[in-house]
Design a protein around this nucleic acid. Structure first.
Lengths: 148, 148
DNA sequence: ATTTATGCAAATAGTTTGCACACGT
DNA sequence: ACGTGTGCAAACTATTTGCATAAAT
């Protein structure tokens, strides 16, 4: 029963980028919204969480939808290499337009977001100096708790 | 005939980190040295290049050696997401201790290296502010040629 | 009604691993 | 001689894709 659904903010998001409003797309968007700023979810986690809450959505669909969302700039995809040796997995978060960067604690796996205008400024400047425009940037600090 | 070989800089590198001086390890190190600052090689490229020049080295060995080198800080591993859709591959470069960052041109695939002390300083400061020490950092600018 | 999306299962591709043998020290 | 490293083939895993059905406009 998606037809005739109330016009929520999320359905608008989908319409705006030219994607049909389907159950999987809505649910994935809602889940990311709920999880926003708390955690960065992998495709598999999204798949599992949705199915646990009763939405029967295939893993392939999760991947397809996330990929479409990424191209539509609705989500950002990250590859965090926690150095754990286990295979790397992409993780996703809602794209809020604030273009923040990330810090990954190698001991706890915690992800901390931050923004630094000076760093952003210098990045733009460096790119310009080489004759480029920045399309996207990825800054990840792998850290460990300070011992003092 | 590796035994009795002249004590080159590369054999020293291996000894220093406690790795036996074997043919595959030496050749991979030499190849990376030769390619230094020009390109960043994937495991598969290394495998192919070595075999083309007559060194019969298995792909599995290439992966194993690179992984050991990474842990020994002899090489740095990067995941460049060129946004091409094709599966992401790790690529490797000699670790020169200068801790430079990278710019990837989305149109040509070119990789440009750069160092910015101010960015590094701010990174350290941001980590400290959150109670962390930086173990490793990854800054990648995905760029396209300026159109003017 | 037409187009696009979904689910499933099978395919892909990078990377890892088990094991018997070869090599470095 | 001993312990490690290597090659091969098989295993693994994240992700993608083909195809028939189902859902959205």
């Amino acid at each position: 029963m998606i037809n005739g659904v109330v016009m929520t903010e999320r359905t608008m998001d989908l319409r705006k980028v030219g994607l049909k409003v389907t159950h999987p797309r809505l649910q994935i968007l809602r889940l990311l919204e709920k999880t926003e700023r708390k955690k960065h979810l992998t495709a598999d986690e999204i798949y599992r969480l949705l199915n646990e809450q009763g939405d029967e959505i295939g893993l392939a669909t999760v991947y397809r939808v996330l990929s479409q969302f990424e191209q539509a700039c609705l989500v950002r995809k990250h590859m965090f290499d926690d150095g754990s040796g286990r295979p790397m997995q992409a993780c996703y978060e809602l794209h809020e337009g604030d273009n923040h960067d990330h810090m990954v604690c190698l001991e706890t796996g915690d992800v901390i977001e931050f923004v630094d205008e000076e760093i952003n400024r210098r990045q733009t400047e460096i790119a310009a100096r080489h004759g480029y425009d920045i399309v996207e940037s990825s800054l990840i600090l792998y850290v460990r708790p300070k011992k003092d």
